[in-house]
Design a protein around this nucleic acid. Sequence first.
DNA 1: GATTGGATCGCCT
DNA 2: GGCGATCCAATCG
Length: 203
Amino acid sequence: MLGTMVTSWHPKEVLPLSFYERETTVVAKELLGHYLFHHDPEGMIAGRIVETEAYLGRDDPACHSYRGITPRCQSMFGSAGRIYVYLIYGMYYCFNITTDIPEVPAAVLIRALEPVTGIEIMRKRRRKDKLRDLCSGPGKLAAAMGFDKTFDGQSLLTGPVGVSPGQLKPDEEIITATRIGISRAVDWPLRFYLSNNPFVSKK
DNA sequence: GATTGGATCGCCT
DNA sequence: GGCGATCCAATCG
């Protein structure tokens, strides 16, 4: 019945490998406005990417791959367009997307999403009601989207998690800033977020 | 083998 | 603003 029909967001296509196989700062900026989705057993969950950070690999002291390959960060070593998830502070997961050529172990941290669909699932998992509390930080969005260590290494081109194309709005600008929560390379301008967006983790 | 610090968050003052 | 939760990886702080 038309009167009871609800709009349901569903990805129509996913970004190709060539999108991810570029320099990490370019990918971090261009991910803004696209849609991260998870075809979860509980239902489709998705959010618009509004904040990212670039981690550049062997030349970036703040990057986990800075001192070489370890069991934790091995997903950054290899092909682009895959998931790198790690546990932080013993209780939260951080969700990253691998980038660049296989020889460069780099990734983009997804720091914040604007909730789009699956919002009731997000509310249940986060135990929060306000939209702004669901995905406004890397640990928050991983919990809301249902991401944990089992997603580490998965492809974003063939699996239940992917990125589908979106657009920037006419009045949106990309703001560049320094990365949050790190202790090395603290002044490198590798954090990017959308202007005037209430869902970013910090201004 | 032990210690320390962390790409965080939520609750406290 | 400060701090505790809680586990893992890096370092021997």
